[in-house]
Nucleic acid binder design. Sequence first.
DNA 1: TATATCGTATCTTTTGATGATACATATAGG
DNA 2: CCTATATGTATCATCAAAAGATACGATATA
Lengths: 139, 139
Amino acid sequence: MNRDTRLSDVLHVLLHLDQASDPVTSQVLSQSMGTNPAVFRRTMAGLREAGYVTSGKGPGGGWTLAVPLDQISLLDVYTALGCPNLFAIGSRSDNPDCLIERNVNEALAETMRQAESLFTERFGAVTLDTLVPDRPLPN
Amino acid sequence: MNRDTRLSDVLHVLLHLDQASDPVTSQVLSQSMGTNPAVFRRTMAGLREAGYVTSGKGPGGGWTLAVPLDQISLLDVYTALGCPNLFAIGSRSDNPDCLIERNVNEALAETMRQAESLFTERFGAVTLDTLVPDRPLPN
DNA sequence: TATATCGTATCTTTTGATGATACATATAGG
DNA sequence: CCTATATGTATCATCAAAAGATACGATATA
């Protein structure tokens, strides 16, 4: 199964938006993402609702970064996308009658919980400004 | 994206095999996995090659556990399955020209490396005997 | 009003996994 | 040996979810 690249795609777009002074159209941004405007808008809808970007209609319209990059964490973006599933593995079903299945599922679920915490912590600790090339890390 | 349940499925089968004295056929085991014999054999091929189970043809044939559960780790099983992809997220492509893309990809990849290490460590620390119900943990 | 742009519903396509089928191979047992 | 029972595996079909494409209404600018 192909991986979900929306998080990577959206980060890419946000960093590019940061470098633009005027609104950028879905047409242009979708190309930088290798897709089409409708898919792009669908993907960005959550970020707009969360207020990280704004979009304007009509001539001169397009997308604008609404919050400075140092005030957006990777976790914020991930959350705005609807917290897409992180893992490719899982359990087939929860048959509560089979004790073996319960134990197996629990063993996997426990590790996945820990891994999810790891993602959350790391994502929460990274703000987008640190991903901009040639900008010194704040410290 | 549906999750890959092979690891969970196979663990389930191994624990059941541990409780069987005679070989068990693909027919029977595939039902306990909710699939058909051909899919079952395909899934178990790696475990057979790794020596954790043996399979016999002909009447009275079927599958047998070849190694005690306390000598098989979750990591062993995962590896025997061919180390299936753990993550549902990823980067679209590696365009080495775009510095932004490189930074974004690296940020995600670094976290995924850490999460993978977490899986590997945890999986390596769990032997299958600890998943058997009503069997006291060794300590 | 004409044009550009977004928002989104809907349909189509793609893709990888899974399921299904078929058949060759091998083994046990009479 | 012959038959019945299993596995091993190649190949084809099916499926579901995501992505892509299209269309069209709404809105904003000038």
